[in-house]
Design a protein around this nucleic acid. Structure first.
Lengths: 190, 190
DNA sequence: CGATTCTTTGAAAACAGTCAATCTGTGTGG
DNA sequence: CCACACAGATTGACTGTTTTCAAAGAATCG
C-alpha cells in the first residue's frame, strides 16, 4: 500500500531513499470499509490522511439533520479536517468512506517533524495547501456568481472521476441544492 | 505609516529591532485614493499588501459585466490575489479602494526572503494562511447550507466593522444575492 | 443645488424547495 | 432462482423564495 504513496511523492518532488524511509517509518496503513468513519463529529483530527485507494467524503450534519458535503476525496487526495487538526478542537465534521478504502495516516507531530527534517516535503505540502486555497476561492466565486446549472457542468468537467462514482444526491449536497432540483437540471441538459 | 505595521507584527509575533528593520527595508508605503485600483484584471500580482488604513475589495467582473466581491479588507488585513501571486499568471480579479487607503507593499521576492531570514515571520504568515483557509471552508459551508437570511446575520455579527462602512449592495454581491433581495431581508429582520 | 450613488418598493416571471409517489437497479437471504 | 428490501433517481403538484425590471425615494458629495 505504501508503494503508491511512494510513487505519488516521487512524481511530485523526488526523494532520496533515506527520506522515503523516514516517511515510511511514520506512515500508518489502514483499511476502511464502505460507510466506515475516519473521523466523527466530536473527535479531534490527529492525522493527515492520504487516500491510496477508494473514495471518501467530508461533511457536516446541520441542526435539522441534513448532511452537507464539503468535499470529496479520491486516490491521491488528502483528507482531513484542517480546522480540528490545526486548533486541536473537536471536529464539527464527519469523514467517512463511500467505498472500501486504503489510506495512509501520519500523526500530526510526525507530520510536522517530517516537514522540518525534509524541507522538500514541507515545501511540497505548502504548495499543495496554496493550490487548495485557490481552489476554495474559486469555489466561493462559483457560489456567488454561477447558476446551479453552470456549477453542475463545472463539477462534471473538473471532477469527472468523482462524478462517475458518487451518487447524484451527494453531488447535489456538495453543490448546495436539493437532489430533485439537480435531477431536473440534468434532465434539461440532455 | 510603518509604525502601525510594526505594532501589528509585534503584537502577534514579537520581533527584534534588527528583524523589524529588515522588514522595514523592503516595505513600500503607498496611499490609494478612493476608487483607485491596487490591482487590475490582467495585471500580475507581484506584491503582498497590508492595509494600514482604509477599506478595499477584491472582486471579479463576469462576462455579463456584473461585479462579484470575493472579499473585503480593512485595517490589519492582507489583500492580494493569491492565485496570480502564486502562479505569476495575469489576475482575473480587481482590487480597489473603497475609501482612501494607506497600505504597505512587499514585493514577492523580498517577502519570500523575509520568510526564510526570519522564521518567526514565516511561521506567522503560515498560521495566517491556515486560518484563512479554514475561514474559506466555513464560508463554503455557509453557502451550501444556510439561508440568505442566516448568511446576512452571520456577516453582520462576524464583520460588524465591514458592515458599517460598506454599501449594502456590495454586501449583497459578497453574499451572492441581488441587492433587492438583501434589502427585503433586512426589512423583515427589523 | 444638482449629480451621483445607494436603497427601497411593487409586480411579474423564473427558479428552487418540499412532499409524496413511483420507478430503477442492486444485492441479499430464503 | 426468485422475492424482497434497499438505496438511488425521477416526476408531478404545490409552495415559497429570488431575480428581474422599472420606478421612485434617500443620502451624500462636490
Amino acid at each position: 500500500m505504501f508503494l503508491k504513496f511512494n510513487q505519488y511523492l516521487n512524481e511530485r518532488s523526488d526523494m532520496t531513499a533515506d527520506e522515503m524511509n523516514a516517511i515510511r517509518a511514520v506512515s500508518i496503513e489502514k483499511k476502511l470499509r464502505k460507510k466506515q468513519y475516519l473521523l466523527q463529529q466530536g473527535d479531534v483530527c490527529h492525522h493527515n490522511c492520504f487516500i491510496v485507494k477508494g473514495c471518501m467524503r467530508l461533511y457536516r450534519v446541520s441542526e435539522d439533520g441534513a448532511e452537507h458535503i464539503l468535499r470529496f476525496g479520491v486516490e491521491n487526495w488528502w483528507m482531513s479536517d484542517q480546522e480540528s487538526y490545526r486548533t486541536g478542537n473537536p471536529s464539527k465534521n464527519n469523514i467517512d468512506a463511500l467505498e472500501n478504502c486504503e489510506v495512509i495516516l501520519i500523526d500530526k507531530s510526525d507530520f510536522s517533524q517530517l516537514k522540518i527534517d525534509i524541507p522538500k516535503f514541507g515545501c511540497f505540502i505548502e504548495k499543495l495547501k496554496a493550490r487548495s486555497f485557490d481552489a476554495s476561492q474559486n469555489r466561493i466565486l462559483s457560489h456567488i456568481s454561477d447558476t446551479t446549472e453552470v456549477k453542475y457542468q463545472n463539477f462534471i468537467t473538473f471532477f469527472p472521476d468523482i462524478f462517475n462514482r458518487v451518487p447524484l444526491h451527494m453531488i447535489a449536497s456538495y453543490l448546495g441544492v436539493s437532489r430533485e432540483t439537480l435531477s431536473r437540471i440534468r434532465k434539461n441538459i440532455r
